[in-house]
Structures are given as structure tokens and as C-alpha cells.
Amino acid sequence: MQNFSRTQIVWLKIDCPYDGSLSTLCKSFLKAIDDLLGTRYLETFGYANRVTSTMMLHMTPLASIYGIGVLVIDEIYHLLNSKNDMEEMLNFFVTLSNTVGIPTVLIGTSKAQKIFKGNFRQARRAASEGSIIWDRMDKESDEWSFFLEILWDFQCLKENTILTDKIRDAFYDECQGITAVAANLFILAQERALSEEEEKITIEILRATAKEDLHMIQPMIKALRNNNMKEVIKYEYISISLEDISVNYKRDIELIGKFSIKKM
């Protein structure tokens, strides 16, 4: 017997460039491999060949050599900003799937659906392996109950807050079952409790955190709370800068600590 050594990339994720450039998308593929393996494919195939079709031909053997299991392309709604014709972009994904020869998963917000509307051929191909619309979790679902109970185990305050029905109702009311908002609300509520020397999660702290720290997404949360889909569409994508908010809390906590030291 002889040992067989081979490097395999089980999955590869790249982000669609903000300007929707198909050439840059191909370069992102090459760079992602370079970042993982320390190779120089971007320098070899990316900068020398600016033609998208040529770079796509180089992507094919690389996908085979490293046995890439699936290619994930995130933020595909950026393609709407592309200077290319919409039909050209749709053809690109068909060709990419045929040429590279690996499963391709496209991820984006609801805005990305505009890319496929009006083109039966691409819509059929996009949904050939199934399509999933990831909606918010329902308040009464087992999924939400399981998620919240697991999340609640990560409390890091001195006093452990029991997950009562009132806490559950208030928490869902402020995040509306959106995973990212729920996680951020949970983290920020604890940081607020620390800064206010509460050391426990209360309904009042949850409400104050949502109102003040997550004020940018309140219009969207309100629209979801009222089940007003016309308003929800207006807020297609809102990001939360958790790091910026956390820095403010850390500064407050540091100042409180310094004051305490001086008093002793």
C-alpha cells in the first residue's frame, strides 16, 4: 500500500463584490483559495488575465484539484449594482455552474430575488436543488423556544435571570424572532446591566436596550410587530454595529472601575 496525500477544500465561501463586477467575483474565488492554502493563484491567473471567461477556465481545474465540495456566493444582491446587463449576469451563473462543475449556493437578502425574476431559465436553475427563504422564527414555535433556552445559558452576570413567560414575551417583542437581533439584544442587555451595576437581565433593561442601542432597526421591528409587509420591504437590509455599541459600554465600565478605585 502507498499513502495518498491530497488537500481538499470541503466548501469555499466568497462574497459578491459591492459593485457587482463579475471579474472581481472570479478574483475573489482565486484569493479565497490563496488565503486557505498560501498559494499565489490570484497573482498568476487574476492580475494577468482580466477577462472573466479566461479566469473562469482557470477556476475549473482548481475546483477539481482541490476537490471543492460546494461554492457558496454570499451577498449576491450586489449584482443589482453591476454595470453588466442582467441577462449577462444570469448567463454567468449558468456558465459558472456548467464550467466549474461544482454545486453553487447563492445567498442574499430578499432583494436578490429581483435578479431571477423574469428569467425562467435562470430561475429554474437557481431552484433546481431547492430554494429556502429564511424567515424569522415564530413566537410559538419549538424552534424559537429551543433557540432562546440555549441562548439564555450564556448569561455572564452575577445574578442568573430565570427565563419566565414575561421575559420571553418582552424579548420576542423586541427582536421579533430574528436570530441576529436576538443575539445582539442578549449581548447588549448584559453590557447595559453591567454599566448600570444591575448584574441581571430585567424586562426594563431589555426594553431600554432595544430602544436606545438598537434604535436604528426600530422602524423595521415595529413593522414586523404590526405585520405590515409594505413597511418591511422598505427596510430590506439593516446592519447593527455591535462592536461600536460595545465599545461605548466598555468605556463606561472602565470609568466606573477607575472611580471606584479612587474612592477606596
Rank of each mutant, 00 (worst) to 15 (best):
K263A: 14
D252Y: 02
V51R: 14
Q176L: 04
L90R: 15
L214G: 04
F186Q: 05
F92R: 07
L148Q: 03
L36R: 12
I133S: 11
M56H: 01
E191M: 15
I65E: 11
E149D: 15
A127V: 02
S5H: 08
Q8M: 08
K13I: 02
S97P: 02
N91D: 11
G46H: 04
L96P: 01
R251W: 10
M229I: 11
E140R: 13
P219T: 03
Y77H: 14
L25M: 13
E159R: 12
S21Q: 06
M59C: 15
N49K: 03
H215F: 10
T202A: 06
V51N: 14
D35W: 04
C26Q: 08
N227R: 15
H58P: 00
K262Q: 12
E88D: 09
K211F: 03
A123G: 07
L71C: 09
M55L: 14
L148P: 00
T95N: 12
Y77N: 07
W11R: 12
S128R: 07
I203C: 09
V232C: 14
L206I: 15
D74S: 12
T52S: 01
S110T: 12
K250H: 11
Y18C: 04
R50L: 12
D34N: 09
S128D: 05
A189M: 08
S110F: 08
I133N: 10
E174C: 13
L194P: 00
K13G: 10
M1E: 08
D74E: 14
I9F: 09
V70G: 00
L30P: 02
Q113G: 00
I73N: 08
M220A: 12
D169C: 08
L22A: 01
K117I: 12
Y237S: 13
K263F: 10
V51F: 04
Y249P: 04
I102L: 09
A48E: 13
E196A: 09
C156A: 14
T44R: 14
S239L: 06
T164P: 00
I221A: 05
S82I: 05
M1T: 09
C16M: 15
D169L: 10
A182Y: 02
P103D: 01
I33P: 08
L22I: 10
K200Q: 11
N227P: 00
K200M: 09
S64L: 05
T7W: 00
L79M: 13
W134V: 15
R125V: 09
R40I: 01
W11I: 02
S195H: 06
I217C: 01
G69Q: 04
E197L: 10
Q2K: 08
N91R: 09
I253R: 14
I203H: 02
E75D: 15
F259G: 10
L214Y: 04
S246N: 02
K166C: 01
A123K: 13
V94R: 13
T39G: 04
E196C: 05
I217P: 00
F4A: 05
L214F: 06
I205E: 04
L151Q: 13
K166I: 04
S5Q: 10
T179P: 02
E75K: 13
S28L: 05
E198F: 02
